[in-house]
Computed example of a mutant assay.
Amino acid sequence: MTYYIIKLIIMLPIMAGMIYGGLWLYKKYQPGLIARLDTSARDLKVVESVSMGVSGKLAVVEFAGQKILLSVTRAQINMIASAGTATSSASAPFPPAALAEPDRDLLSTFKGRGA
């Protein structure tokens, strides 16, 4: 019985130290952390990002004086719309090319009605 208590007293601080050390290393060497610290010298900036479910995300990216709305999934990245910062008008292909043919027809019908 005393063998198990001695083993517990020795192993518990070792395990706690390993967990703490692993979390510290993860925080220190987290991918992309260094790139996020110096955003003033970068040409590409992620202005805002919104999660759209488990594997989808909408992101606004600023590049060369333009703001670009991107749809990001695990498989692909699509540009939805872009707007220059000098002009606030957004330009987007209508209907979006990513939509299936029946969805494009339905979307065109709604746009024709003014809805």
Rank of each mutant, 00 (worst) to 15 (best):
M1L: 12
M1Q: 09
T2P: 03
Y3E: 14
Y3M: 12
Y4V: 12
I6E: 10
I6V: 14
I6N: 10
K7L: 15
I9N: 00
I10M: 10
M11F: 07
P13K: 10
I14V: 10
M15C: 05
I19R: 05
G21N: 03
G22K: 06
L25S: 09
L25M: 14
L25V: 11
Y26W: 14
K27A: 14
K28W: 14
Y29V: 01
Y29Q: 05
Q30N: 10
P31D: 00
I34W: 06
I34G: 05
A35L: 03
T39A: 07
T39G: 07
S40H: 08
A41W: 05
D43L: 11
K45C: 07
V46K: 02
V46N: 01
V46T: 08
V47Q: 05
V47E: 13
M52G: 06
G53L: 04
V54G: 04
S55T: 13
G56L: 05
K57R: 13
K57M: 13
K57V: 01
L58F: 09
L58A: 02
A59H: 00
A59Q: 06
V61R: 02
E62F: 00
E62D: 04
F63W: 12
A64Q: 14
G65W: 11
Q66I: 02
K67M: 15
K67S: 09
I68S: 00
I68V: 07
L69C: 06
L69T: 03
L70M: 09
S71G: 13
V72Q: 01
T73K: 06
R74K: 05
R74F: 02
A75W: 13
A75S: 14
Q76E: 15
Q76M: 12
I77A: 04
M79H: 04
M79S: 10
I80D: 05
I80V: 15
A81S: 15
A83R: 09
T85R: 11
A86P: 01
T87R: 10
S88I: 09
A90K: 08
A92V: 13
P93F: 11
P93G: 14
P96D: 00
A97D: 12
A97G: 07
A97P: 08
A98V: 13
A98N: 08
L99T: 02
A100C: 06
A100R: 09
A100T: 15
A100I: 09
E101C: 01
E101G: 00
D105Q: 08
L107F: 10
S108Y: 06
S108H: 05
S108W: 03
S108L: 13
T109A: 08
T109V: 07
F110A: 10
F110E: 10
K111L: 14
G112T: 11
G112K: 12
G114E: 02
G114Y: 02
G114P: 03
A115M: 11
A115R: 10
